[in-house]
C-alpha cells in the first residue's frame, strides 16, 4: 500500500524524534484495522481512491504530527498584546514618519529624484528596511526572553491587586506633561524671538532658509498660544469642551504649518568659511541636516495627527462616562 507508506513517512518526518517509530506503528495499525473492517463490509478489496478517502479524513500529515508535539510559543498570550502594542508604536512613531518623508522626497523634490534616478530611488529605502528588520528582531527577541524569564520566575503568579495601575481619568490632563509642554514651548518661543541662542560651532554656519521667514508670525503665534494653553492646563488640569476645541484648533493649525514646511524644503543652509577642497563634505552635511529636519517635521506631523484624533474623540465623548452601561 504505497500511498499509506508515503503518508506515514510524511507524518514520521514531522514527529518528535523519540516518538517517531512508536507513533507510526500505532497509526499504521489503526489504519490497517479500518481498511480490514471496510473491506469486510464491502466484501472486496478497497481501491486506491477509497484508501485515499480514509487518509483525507485523517488530515494533512502536518496536522496529524502537530497534535503529538508539546504546545510551544515564543511569546505567550499574556505578553502578546504588549508585544503587538510596542511593534505598533515603533511602526507608527518611527517607521511611518520615515516612510512619509521618503515619499515626500520622492514625489515633491525633483533634485532628490535626479540624485537617485530610476530604481536607485527604491534603493534609498534600504536603511528603513534594515531598521525595520532590526527593530522587529530586537523587540521579538526581547519579548521572547521576557516570556522565558516570566515563566521561570513565576512573576505573574506572585501578583497582588495592589500592583494594578491606577485607573486613568480620560478628562484629567497630566500636570507633568503640561509643565513639560510649557517649558519646551517657552524655550522654542524664546529661541524663535532670538532671545535665546543655542550653542554653535564657530567653524560651521547654519542659517535657516527663507521659508521660515515667511512663517515667522504664524509660528510665533502658534508657539505663544501653546505656551498659554500649557500654562492653563498646568493649573486647571481637566479638559473642558472649550479647551478641547482650542487644542484641536491649535493642532490643526500646527498640521497645516507642518504640511507647508514639508513642501517647502530645504530648510537650512550650511556654510563652512574655510572649507577649501571639502565642498563635497559640506554638501553632504547640509543634505543630512535637511533630512533630519524633514524626519523631525514628519514626526511632529504624526504626533499632531494623533493629537487631533484624540481631540476629536474627546469632543465626541458624552459629558459623563456611563460605567457599566449596556451598549
Amino acid at each position: 500500500m504505497e500511498i499509506l507508506d508515503r503518508y506515514l513517512q510524511s507524518v514520521k518526518w514531522l514527529l518528535p524524534k523519540e516518538q517517531k517509530e512508536d507513533v507510526v506503528a500505532e497509526l499504521s495499525e489503526d489504519f490497517r484495522s479500518q481498511i480490514e473492517e471496510e473491506e469486510a463490509g464491502l466484501g472486496r478489496k478497497l481501491d486506491e481512491s477509497e484508501v485515499e478517502a480514509i487518509l483525507q479524513r485523517w488530515g494533512h500529515p502536518l496536522l496529524v504530527a502537530q497534535r503529538y508535539a508539546p504546545q510551544q510559543y515564543l511569546i505567550g498570550p499574556a505578553l502578546f498584546p504588549v508585544y503587538r502594542f510596542v511593534l505598533k508604536m515603533v511602526a507608527l512613531c518611527y517607521l511611518l514618519p520615515w516612510l512619509l518623508v521618503w515619499l515626500f522626497y520622492g514625489i515633491f523634490v525633483p533634485s532628490y529624484r535626479a540624485e537617485h534616478p530610476g530604481l536607485e530611488l527604491i534603493g534609498t529605502l534600504q536603511p528603513l528596511l534594515l531598521i525595520a528588520v532590526f527593530a522587529f528582531t530586537v523587540i521579538t527577541v526581547g519579548f521572547a526572553v521576557a516570556e522565558k524569564s516570566q515563566i521561570r520566575s513565576g512573576s505573574l503568579e506572585r501578583w497582588t491587586p495592589r500592583k494594578v495601575p491606577v485607573a486613568r481619568d480620560p478628562d484629567r490632563i497630566s500636570r507633568s506633561e503640561s509643565i513639560g509642554d510649557m517649558v519646551g514651548d517657552l524655550i522654542f518661543t524664546l529661541w524663535w524671538l532670538d532671545v535665546l541662542r543655542l550653542p554653535s560651532i564657530p567653524e560651521v554656519r547654519f542659517t535657516l532658509t527663507l521659508v521660515w521667514d515667511n512663517l515667522y508670525w504664524p509660528i510665533l503665534l502658534l508657539a505663544l498660544a501653546s505656551v498659554a494653553m500649557a500654562a492653563v492646563n498646568t493649573f486647571r488640569p481637566r479638559w473642558t469642551r472649550l479647551r478641547s476645541a482650542l487644542r484641536l484648533g491649535l493642532d490643526a493649525a500646527g498640521l497645516v504649518l507642518m504640511g507647508y514646511l514639508l513642501s517647502a524644503g530645504p530648510w537650512t543652509e550650511v556654510a563652512v568659511p574655510n572649507s577649501d577642497g571639502r565642498e563635497l563634505a559640506v554638501h553632504e552635511l547640509a543634505k543630512w541636516i535637511n533630512l533630519s529636519v524633514a524626519i523631525a517635521l514628519g514626526v511632529i506631523g504624526v504626533i499632531l495627527i494623533l493629537s487631533l484624533v484624540r481631540g476629536i474623540r474627546r469632543l465626541r465623548r458624552p459629558e459623563a462616562t456611563l460605567i457599566g452601561a449596556y451598549p
Partner: peptide
Amino acid sequence: IEEGTLYPLLR
C-alpha cells in the same frame, strides 16, 4: 473521536 485526537490524548 477522531484518530488524530485519540492517539495524542492517549500519549
